[in-house]
């Protein structure tokens, strides 16, 4: 494996992982695309040195066709998964106007309970309850304080 290829795979994997950690589903999909292609490049370089095609009768050294078959399959599967995820993002946007991946309901419930017990034993019990009715995303942050 050449250094250029290794660097490319590393950078692409890092960028994909970074995007995958976002809340927006669109960015996650882009991240998955980058990460999947980094892995495809790994599989491709596993096939041996460049210049030898996996075709019988082309002359010269014939490469093992298995990695190519692996990558082709992975690309097709990746296409299907990406299309499915894009449809999911669209549906999510149709339902509530954004494509953010939401919190687990049980996590929200626990965070809310923790927040309430925190408030009831806290120094300022007169705080308004209106904060509890805020967006779900705000609850865990408030729980940290």
């Amino acid at each position: 494996m050449s250094w250029a290829m290794a660097t490319l795979i590393g950078l692409q994997g890092a960028a994909g992982t970074y995007l995958l950690l976002h809340r927006s589903l669109t960015r996650i999909i882009l991240g998955i695309g980058l990460l999947a292609n980094a892995v495809n490049l790994i599989a491709l370089t596993a096939g041996g040195s460049p210049g030898s095609p996996p075709i019988i009768g082309e002359g010269g050294e014939t490469a093992d066709p298995l990695p190519q078959a692996l990558v082709l399959t992975a690309i097709v599967i990746g296409l299907g998964v990406t299309a499915f995820l894009l449809a999911t993002a669209l549906r999510s946007w149709t339902i509530d106007g954004n494509d953010d991946v939401e919190d687990d309901i049980e996590d929200v419930r626990l965070a809310r309970a923790a927040l309430e017990s925190d408030r009831s034993s806290g120094p300022d019990p007169t705080t308004s309850d209106s904060e509890f009715t805020g967006g779900l995303d705000e609850v865990p942050e408030a729980g940290d304080s």
């Binding site: 995958l20 998955i32 990460l35 892995v39 596993a46 599967i77 991946v101």
Partner: peptide
């Protein structure tokens, strides 16, 4: 279903990516 299904799909896509990487490296 969209809320929890998204988590499921993304996590499992990550799993298949890991598996593909493992398979490719085993072959290498």
């Amino acid at each position: 279903q969209i809320r929890s299904g998204t988590t499921y799909v993304v996590l499992n896509v990550l799993e298949s990516t890991l598996l593909l990487m493992a398979v490719a490296l085993v072959f290498a």
